[in-house]
C-alpha cells in the first residue's frame, strides 16, 4: 500500500497519474469517495482511492475511532487482493473549525491517516507538484 498526502489543489492526482504512466501494462482504477467492495481484483491491478473526507462524512454520526478503524479495515482487505494507493488530502493544519461536524471530520481524517501511514510501505507528500518521500521508496 502507498499513501500520497498533501493539501488541496497541490497536484496529488496529477503526480500519481504521471508516475503510473510508465506502468501501462497494468490495470488502473480510480475511485473518489468510495471503496470498491468487489473481490474480482488481482494483484497486478492498481486501485487509487481519493476523497476520504466523503467516505468519512457518510458515517459521521458514528464514533471517531470506530469510523477510522472501519475504513482502515476495508482498505487493508482491498490491499490483500490488489495494490492500493491512497490519496489523502491534508486538512489538519488550519484553524479549528467552528462546526462540530467539521471538527469531527478533521479529527477522524487524522486518525485514519495515521493508520494508513503506518500500514503503507511508502508515504509521499506532494507540495505543488514536488514530491517528498516521508517513508519508504519512490513509487
Amino acid at each position: 500500500m502507498q499513501v500520497i498526502i498533501g493539501g488541496a489543489y497541490n497536484g496529488k492526482r496529477k503526480f500519481v497519474k504521471e508516475k503510473l504512466l510508465n506502468n501501462s501494462s497494468t490495470n488502473i482504477h480510480f475511485f473518489e469517495g468510495e471503496i470498491p467492495t468487489s473481490n474480482m481484483f488481482s494483484k497486478e491491478e492498481i486501485i487509487v482511492i481519493g476523497n476520504f473526507e466523503k467516505i468519512i462524512l457518510q458515517n459521521v454520526h458514528l464514533e471517531e475511532e470506530f469510523i477510522a478503524e472501519e475504513v482502515f479495515h476495508l482498505i487493508k482487505k482491498l490491499n490483500q487482493q490488489a495494490q492500493v494507493i491512497c490519496i489523502c488530502t491534508d486538512i489538519g493544519r488550519g484553524v479549528v473549525p467552528l462546526l462540530k461536524e467539521e471538527r469531527k471530520l478533521r479529527d477522524t481524517c487524522g486518525r485514519l491517516y495515521q493508520k494508513l501511514f503506518s500500514e503503507s510501505e511508502s508515504v509521499i507528500r506532494v507540495w505543488y507538484g514536488i514530491p517528498q518521500i516521508l517513508k519508504g521508496e519512490v513509487l
Binding site: 493539501g7 488541496a8 489543489y9 497541490n10 497536484g11 473526507e53 491534508d90 486538512i91 489538519g92 493544519r93 488550519g94 484553524v95 473549525p97 462546526l99 467539521e102 471530520l105 478533521r106 507540495w127 505543488y128 507538484g129 514536488i130
Partner: peptide, 30 residues
C-alpha cells in the same frame, strides 16, 4: 499564503479561490 491544508469550506466562493490559488501555486513552483 498556505491555505490549502484545511478542510474545504462550505462556501463555494472560498473553494473556488482555493482551487485558483492552488493551481497558480503549482504553476509558479514549476
Amino acid at each position: 499564503n498556505e491555505i490549502l491544508d484545511e478542510p474545504a469550506s462550505s462556501y463555494a466562493e472560498a473553494n473556488y479561490y482555493r482551487r485558483l490559488l492552488g493551481e497558480l501555486h503549482q504553476w509558479i513552483v514549476h
